[in-house]
Simulated assay, not measured.
Amino acid sequence: MKLRTPAVVLLAAATALSLAACRDSRSDGAGGTQTNLKIMVGGIDKVIYLPAKLTEQLGYFKEQGLTVDLATQQAGVNAENSLIAGDVQGVVGFYDHTIDLQTKGKCLQSVVQLANIPGEVEVVATAKADQVRSAADFKGRKLGVTDLGSSTDFLTQFLASQHGLKAGTDFTEVKAGAGSTFVASLENGQIDAGMTTDPTVAQLTSTGKGKVLMDMRTVEGTKAALGGLYPASSLYMTCDYVAAHQDVVQKLANALVKTLKFVNTHSAAEIAEKMPADFAGGNKDLYVKAINDTKSMFNADGRMPADGAANVLTVLSQFSPNVKGKKDTVDLSKTYTTRFVDKS
């Protein structure tokens, strides 16, 4: 028998360790499941997407053996572009993108539905509050949306349409972004009102610069404004990725559902305490208020309500250029799945 030299033994051991490390970081040895991945969030500091960062803060991703890099884009439409380009493996954003993209031949799937309502608020500048009391008063106004072609764009058009108003002819939509850019737009008169989320809502109302016109942070407010549930915040991924990496998707679902249960069993103050200090923007009390005003939007199990998905399709079929005239071609069953959260 030929004896191997110490150098050969060391080289063989190093090679084995290297191969094992590759398996640990890239696959499960059978289906190519990743454990290092990047997820884009459509505004990581928005309370409507709070579960993403909270899951990281609580250590639930690591608990599942995942290393998740959370990146951010202030508009969901930009986040979806990153997913389609393959720059990220998942997006925490509005579910409606899965429907919109299906009509363009792209298959995206919500694997964890974080909320069954939008969490959006139509805020009017305090100086215009006496003039703009409902969507019927949108006529002749400049209305802020996150971005043209965004979820807030479609929702704004839907609210106006209930009073016979059309974008471009009866009112003007303005790209106002979120956070400080939205606040500035409302302050300097670039917009009369607009759709945004917490903590921006809390900032505007607490300073007296804005007033709530329509509140879709509650089930009641959402049904009043949109005629039913409107599933929004979700983790969605390409159908190809879901099919090829079911193990990692299951781990993501396990982590996020555990976070949803945490949100539903802890106070806003307790949740805020777990979040990065800079998310409070120097005003922790205001941040706690923002979470408290919004936290009821999150469901406890990550499941998609079928009637809610149908309502989203109804809205998009009227105002999304991609979905108009194609409602009957959309297969909603391909836009979401509950099989992962059912196992969590």
Rank of each mutant, 00 (worst) to 15 (best):
N254W: 02
A255S: 13
L256S: 08
V257R: 03
K258N: 03
L260E: 00
K261R: 15
F262L: 02
V263G: 04
N264R: 14
N264G: 15
H266I: 00
S267F: 00
A268C: 06
E270P: 03
E270S: 09
I271S: 01
I271K: 02
A272D: 07
E273P: 03
E273V: 04
K274H: 10
K274Y: 09
M275Q: 03
M275V: 05
P276C: 08
F279Y: 15
F279A: 11
A280L: 09
G281V: 07
D285N: 14
D285H: 07
D285A: 15
L286R: 15
V288K: 00
V288A: 03
K289F: 13
I291C: 00
N292G: 12
N292T: 07
T294R: 10
K295N: 14
K295Q: 13
K295G: 10
S296T: 13
S296H: 10
M297H: 05
F298V: 02
N299H: 11
A300V: 15
A300W: 11
D301L: 13
G302L: 05
G302W: 09
M304A: 13
M304G: 05
P305E: 08
P305M: 09
A306P: 10
A306D: 14
D307R: 13
G308A: 08
N311T: 10
N311M: 07
L313C: 03
V315M: 10
L316M: 14
L316D: 06
S317W: 06
F319M: 01
S320V: 04
N322C: 05
K324L: 06
G325F: 11
G325K: 11
G325Q: 11
G325T: 07
K326Y: 10
K326E: 11
K326D: 07
K327T: 11
D328M: 04
D331V: 05
D331Y: 08
D331P: 04
D331K: 12
L332C: 01
L332N: 04
L332F: 04
S333G: 15
Y336R: 00
T337Q: 01
